[in-house]
Simulated scan of single mutants.
Amino acid sequence: MTTMYAALLRGINVGGARKVPMAELRTLLESLGHERVSTYLQSGQAVFASGRRDEDGLAAELALAIEKHFGFTADVIVRDHAYLRDVAEACPFPAAELEAKQVHVTYFSAPADAGRFEAIDRRDFLPEEFRLGDRALYLYVPDGLGRSQLADALARPRVNKGLIATTRNWNTVAKLVELTRPS
């Protein structure tokens, strides 16, 4: 039995650096034995089916293949449909009532305990807010991510130390749930 997964690549195709053409990424995933491979946008999302059940192993395998093929390292998080659906359903903000640029999810490679965020005084950033979820952080930024001081504070190395963290806007969150839905 196969499971549908999304691979989330961090920091590729940004500002002309670390280019990963989506057609090559699809071919690379197929060469690893995955089926029903597709990509979404140019910013590092791929969807595939695999009989394997090891998300961390799948991520490590893809990261190594990217390094060998493209000549640079890329952080990769792999998550299955059930997880992506659960994260979307658990959103503490009214995502359906907001613009997609106002709600984001940062996916983490492992659980992030609340202690990582204790130094951030949430009152300093209002009306921006964040909440922790299952290996995810939900971010509400009324003026968008590019203008968010809270997003900058959350991206600091001391907050994310030892974790891979990659952020997607709500449109992408919802689309990945749709694209990984079992057929």
Score class of each variant (00 low, 15 high):
Gly16Phe: 06
Arg18Glu: 03
Lys19Leu: 15
Leu25Asn: 00
Arg26Leu: 11
Leu28Pro: 04
Leu28Ala: 05
Leu28Asn: 05
Leu29Ala: 12
Ser31Val: 10
Ser31Leu: 13
Ser31Phe: 12
Leu32Thr: 07
Gly33Met: 12
Gly33His: 08
His34Trp: 15
Glu35Pro: 09
Arg36Tyr: 12
Arg36Trp: 10
Arg36Gly: 12
Val37Trp: 11
Val37Cys: 08
Ser38Ala: 14
Ser38Trp: 13
Ser38Pro: 07
Thr39Ser: 06
Tyr40His: 13
Leu41Gly: 04
Gln42Leu: 07
Ser43Met: 04
Ser43Glu: 04
Gln45Phe: 09
Ala46Tyr: 07
Phe48Ser: 00
Arg52Met: 11
Asp54Thr: 08
Asp56Arg: 15
Ala59Tyr: 03
Ala60Ser: 15
Leu62Cys: 03
Leu62Asn: 01
Ala63Asn: 04
Ala63Glu: 05
Leu64Asn: 13
Ala65Gly: 04
Ala65Cys: 03
Ile66His: 01
Ile66Pro: 00
Ile66Ser: 01
His69Tyr: 12
His69Pro: 06
Phe70Ile: 02
Gly71Lys: 02
Gly71His: 01
Thr73Pro: 12
Thr73His: 15
Asp75Pro: 12
Asp75Phe: 13
Ile77Arg: 01
Ile77Lys: 01
Ile77Thr: 02
Val78Ala: 05
Arg79Lys: 15
Asp80Ser: 14
His81Ala: 09
Tyr83Trp: 13
Leu84Trp: 00
Leu84Cys: 08
Asp86Glu: 14
Ala88Trp: 05
Glu89Gly: 09
Glu89Asp: 15
Ala90Val: 04
Cys91Gly: 06
Pro94Met: 05
Pro94Gln: 05
Ala96Ile: 07
Glu97Asn: 08
Leu98Gly: 02
Leu98Phe: 12
Ala100Thr: 13
Gln102Ser: 06
Gln102Asn: 10
Val103Met: 10
Val105Ala: 01
Thr106His: 00
Thr106Leu: 01
Thr106Met: 01
Thr106Glu: 00
Phe108Arg: 01
Phe108Ser: 02
Phe108His: 03
Ser109Arg: 02
Ser109His: 03
Pro111Ile: 09
Ala112Asp: 00
Asp113Ala: 06
Asp113Cys: 04
Ala114Asp: 11
Arg116Asn: 06
Arg116Phe: 04
Arg116Ala: 06
Phe117Arg: 01
Phe117Asp: 02
Glu118Cys: 04
Glu118Trp: 08
Ala119Lys: 11
Ile120Ser: 02
Ile120Arg: 00
Asp121Gly: 09
Asp121Arg: 13
Arg122Asp: 11
Arg122Ala: 14
Arg123Thr: 14
Asp124Met: 09
Asp124Trp: 11
Asp124Gln: 14
Leu126Ser: 11
Leu126Phe: 13
Glu129Asn: 10
Glu129Ile: 07
Glu129Phe: 08
Phe130Met: 02
Phe130Tyr: 10
Arg131Thr: 09
Arg131Gln: 15
Gly133Ala: 05
Asp134Arg: 09
Tyr138Lys: 03
Tyr138Arg: 03
Tyr140Val: 01
Val141Ile: 06
Val141Trp: 07
Asp143His: 12
Gly144Pro: 05
Leu145Ser: 11
Leu145Gln: 10
Gly146Asp: 06
Gln149Gly: 15
Gln149Trp: 07
Leu150His: 04
Ala151Phe: 09
Asp152Glu: 15
Asp152Ile: 10
Asp152Leu: 15
Ala153Ile: 05
Ala155Gly: 12
Ala155Arg: 10
Ala155Ser: 15
Pro157Arg: 13
Pro157Lys: 14
Arg158Pro: 09
